[in-house]
């Protein structure tokens, strides 16, 4: 469970085992004149699963994109495994090798079949041996229950299948952290289950995960810690039982009331 320690006290050294895997402190982000994130701080410990919920436009996707430096921040600090993400000298590629991300719209590469989607990055980015990567990719497809779909192109797969390929594609890089941005929002209820099952297995294996989701039941089951964002700030956070059963903030209550 993430502690409430001052994240500013975290040093670059990796000695302390208590050091959070991801640490955000007072993060600010604006697009033009609109400030989308207005000072968000939280820590994620290794192996923890954190769920972020909140109304549309509250900056959840932007926050995730800041963590793997897809979007630069304007203020504050984000540390991943002790390294400052928005340091100008940071090797972004090195960071992104450690952080996998899955998107709402799957974003598979449509001109490559499922297996190639998995194999591309490890071969081209990590420069790993093709045969090894192939074996690992086949195992991963099996893990997400898509054996036999190796040769299928994304256009030939259902939404749920595409999303599982996307998860496997991120896993093929052997990341330490996985970010999920509303990965079931574009799916029909039947296929949502398959994808959630895959994520649950990952979480049980001890993957550090940050999930943005609207699946409240799932979040409650799987999360170690819940956060509710609204208009760029964290309104409420806590362990799921407390968060769902005993929300303190009025905005949390009304949001949960709408959703549940």
């Amino acid at each position: 469970m993430p502690s409430e320690t001052e994240s500013g006290s975290v040093t670059a050294g990796k000695s302390a085992t208590a050091e959070p895997m991801i640490s955000l402190s007072n993060v600010h982000k604006s697009f033009g004149d609109t400030e989308v994130i207005k000072g968000i701080s939280f820590d994620v410990a290794k192996g923890d699963v954190v769920c972020i919920i909140g109304p549309s436009g509250s900056g959840k996707s932007t926050l995730l994109r800041c963590i793997n430096a897809l979007v630069p921040i304007d203020g504050g600090s984000i540390r991943v495994e002790g390294q400052e993400v928005h340091d100008a000298n940071l090797d972004r590629l090195a960071l992104r090798k450690k952080v996998g991300m899955v998107f709402q719209q799957y974003n598979l590469f449509p001109h490559k079949n499922a297996l190639d989607n998995l194999m591309m990055a490890p071969i081209k980015v990590l420069r790993q041996d093709k045969k090894e990567v192939r074996e690992r990719a086949l195992k991963l497809l099996e893990k997400v229950r898509l054996s036999g779909k190796e040769d299928a192109y994304p256009g030939e797969l259902s939404g749920g299948q595409q999303q599982r390929v996307a998860i496997a594609r991120a896993l093929a890089m052997n990341p330490d952290i996985m970010l999920f941005d509303e990965v079931t929002a574009a799916l029909d209820p039947e296929t949502v289950k398959e994808v959630l099952l895959t994520i649950r297995e990952l979480a049980e294996e001890g993957m550090t995960c940050i999930l943005v989701t609207h699946e409240m039941g799932f979040a409650r089951e799987i999360a170690d810690h819940m956060y509710l964002t609204d208009r760029g700030v964290i309104v409420e956070h806590g362990p799921p039982a407390e968060f769902f059963d005993n929300p303190k903030d009025e905005r949390t209550r009304s949001f949960l009331g709408q959703i549940l």
Partner: peptide, 18 residues
Amino acid sequence: IPSGQWEAAHSLAFSRRQ
């Protein structure tokens, strides 16, 4: 080409050229 392709590829640590 949808921006998601860029995002997904960036998140997999591909370089811009790749």
